[in-house]
């Protein structure tokens, strides 16, 4: 159809109209994205009665009572601590193990390198579902079930393929001369890695760290199965059980959802450049 070409003759008014439509669409989608956030976060500050009365309006008499209730009676203080206790080592181990392995894959030739790398790549396409059942019984039989390790180790393990993939790419982008100059200066092989090369991949570590943090903080199925004891639940699982228990106290649930989502949104907004760069570098180039 020829008419797809816009008639240039319509000139400035046509162009103005097009721009207007363009912005209208973008703003509308932005509102649809933001509205649920505004709704949840503002409901968290509403007294329960006000929600039943005027569910959609902004809070008239904002209160922190819902947060206090969720934090103490809802045991969100405990769940928050649990989330931090598992997330910190998961991010740390993922960074350490991925950069060690990524460095070897990027900078050294050794027998079996290709095979090993493919073995790790398999993990990029293998869903967690594929391993969850035997993993549960392994953790049970080794006595790790019922400890924080039941989440820390498996979550680290399933993050390694992606971590190695990213760190390898970052190490590959560093010039060879740096490594040699480190050797000339008398560093041993580990020193070359630790003191010369690793600091240069800081942007890569930040990117991977954010991915690893979000993955651990938001992870649901894994702790649902492996962290069944109430005292071990991370926030996300805590919120799910919380919801089924206080199913009618809407304001309390929204306070819980706010406690989980605010740290994630803050981290995302602070690091969004690195985050989106990492995401698109992997997808567009890799």
């Amino acid at each position: 159809m020829r008419s797809a070409t816009l008639p240039r003759a319509s000139g400035r008014r046509g162009a103005f109209l097009l721009t207007l439509i363009k912005y209208a669409i973008l703003v509308m989608v932005a509102i649809l994205c933001l509205m649920p956030f505004v709704w949840v976060w503002s409901s968290a500050f509403k007294p329960s009665l006000e929600i039943a009365d005027t569910p959609l309006s902004l809070p008239r008499e904002p209160t922190l009572q819902n947060f206090a209730n969720a934090w103490v009676q809802g045991r969100f203080a405990k769940y928050f601590t649990n989330s931090v206790i598992v997330t910190v080592p998961i991010v740390g181990f993922t960074l350490l193990l991925s950069s060690l392995a990524g460095y070897a894959f990027a900078r050294h030739y050794f027998r079996g390198r290709q095979t090993l790398f493919y073995a790790f790549l398999l993990g990029l396409t293998l869903p967690f579902t594929s391993i969850m059942i035997p993993l549960y019984y392994t953790l049970r039989d080794t006595g790790l079930l019922g400890t924080y390790w039941a989440m820390i180790i498996p979550q680290t393990a399933i993050g390694l393929p992606f971590g190695i993939f990213i760190m390898r790419a970052f190490f590959q982008s560093l010039p060879r001369e740096l490594e040699d100059s480190g050797r000339v200066d008398g560093c041993n092989e580990f020193g070359v890695f630790w003191r010369v090369m690793l600091p240069l991949t800081a942007p890569g570590m930040v990117t991977l760290g954010i991915f690893s943090f979000l993955g651990a903080w938001n992870s649901f199925l894994l702790p649902l199965i492996f962290m069944q004891r109430e005292s071990l639940r991370p926030l996300v699982v805590g919120l799910m059980f919380f919801q089924s228990r206080y199913t009618r106290d809407f304001a309390l649930i929204m306070a819980g959802a706010t406690i989980i989502s605010v740290p994630v949104i803050v981290v995302y907004i602070i690091f969004q450049r690195q985050f989106i760069q990492g995401l698109t570098a992997g997808a567009v180039k890799g």
Partner: peptide
Amino acid sequence: IFFMPVVLASVV
């Protein structure tokens, strides 16, 4: 803004 929902936990 468009990416904000993506970082949210699917439970939330």
